[in-house]
């Protein structure tokens, strides 16, 4: 397979995953900002400010936003993250970039997959909307999630299980690991264990919101059958093998896909070593040790290592 084709598939999947994660984050922010006194416990008087600012940080958009805006108001942040053409990481730009990547490698996609992506883009540019009132945002975010799920479903059920499929899935899991870690890092303060203290109302809201952003509020109860505690939630989102958005689950996929490529091509490279190392670190970690090391330090370390894996994938295959 052409290196450029592999690169396009990899980035196509990363951008679709990014669009989906942005939709999830905005969804949670919208809900949290509606909760009564949601942010008072943090000692921040303006709850909107707190929530919308943290979405900017979690999605890595804070610097870009503040270069052209003063206040992270609900309207401004939503516009910047959902629709702004000048922001290369907005949902709109992500879908457009994904579709352009797909167009450049149409022959590596099935007709079903290409047509669904193209339709997503056509629908998107047909929406001339510039803002969302309360209530309207939800419809848009649901649409984004539906279209991105259709993409991953279409990829899983129609693509030939060749190299192209592996590069596409690699993009998905490298992006998802990065995004999951960033969401956790922005919220790490609410996950710090306070002995065996079961959270009050405010903690409960925050934790539920966090689980929601991973589409994991129900699966948490299925897995733990116990009350929400900070330690359990952190363990679930970082170390669970079963939760498809946990850091460990993402790395298991990345590692497996890379091993498959190594067998196919008969070469083991730096990206394989790094991914294997990172995966085994997570696979055999205990949540108590992570807390002892410092959750924030652990997460920033993870983000850096995951980025190195991505860089080495580029060196090995994509250029």
């Amino acid at each position: 397979m052409l290196s450029r084709t592999a690169a396009n598939l990899y980035w196509l999947a990363r951008y679709m995953e990014r669009a989906e994660n942005l939709a999830r984050m905005l969804d949670v922010a919208e809900r949290t900002s509606l909760m009564p006194g949601g942010a008072l416990a943090d000692g921040v008087s303006d709850s909107d400010y707190n929530e919308w600012h943290s979405v900017l940080t979690a999605s890595g958009n804070a610097t870009g936003f503040f270069a052209s805006h003063d206040e992270p108001t609900r309207e401004q942040v939503i516009h910047y993250l959902a629709l702004d053409k000048s922001n290369p990481s907005s949902i709109r730009s992500c879908i457009e970039t994904a579709r352009n990547n797909a167009r450049a490698v149409r022959t590596a996609l099935t007709a079903d997959l290409w047509e669904s992506l193209n339709q997503t883009w056509l629908d998107l540019i047909a929406t001339k909307r510039e803002e969302f009132r309360r209530g309207e945002l939800q419809t848009f975010l649901d649409w984004v999630k539906e279209r991105t799920l259709l993409f991953s479903g279409g990829a899983t059920s129609t693509l030939l299980r060749g190299e192209g499929y592996r590069f596409l899935r690699l993009g998905t899991f490298v992006e998802r690991a990065d995004s999951s870690a960033r969401i956790l890092d922005v919220k790490y303060h609410i996950l710090l264990p306070d002995d065996q203290h079961v959270g009050g109302a405010v903690d409960y809201y925050q934790w539920t919101a966090l689980l929601r952003s991973f589409s994991a509020s129900r699966s948490f109860y299925h897995s733990y059958r116990s009350a929400l505690t900070a330690g359990n939630i952190a363990e679930f989102m970082i170390l669970s093998q079963e939760m498809p958005r946990s850091l460990t689950a993402c790395l298991a996929e990345t590692h497996g896909l890379l091993e498959h490529l190594a067998d196919l091509h008969g070469r083991h490279l730096e990206c394989h070593r790094l991914a294997g190392q990172l995966y085994s670190k997570l696979r055999y970690a205990r949540i108590d040790d992570i807390f002892e090391q410092g959750l924030h330090e652990f997460l920033t370390g993870f983000i850096a290592q995951n980025t190195r894996v991505s860089d080495e994938i580029a060196v090995a295959y994509l250029s």
């Binding site: 052409l2 290196s3 592999a6 190299e163 590069f167 490529l261 091509h265």
Partner: peptide
């Protein structure tokens, strides 16, 4: 995607 070496044409692939 293509390059020429010793008057032969090659494409850059993942292999």
């Amino acid at each position: 995607d293509l390059f020429v070496e010793e008057n032969r044409v090659y494409m850059r692939t993942t292999r």
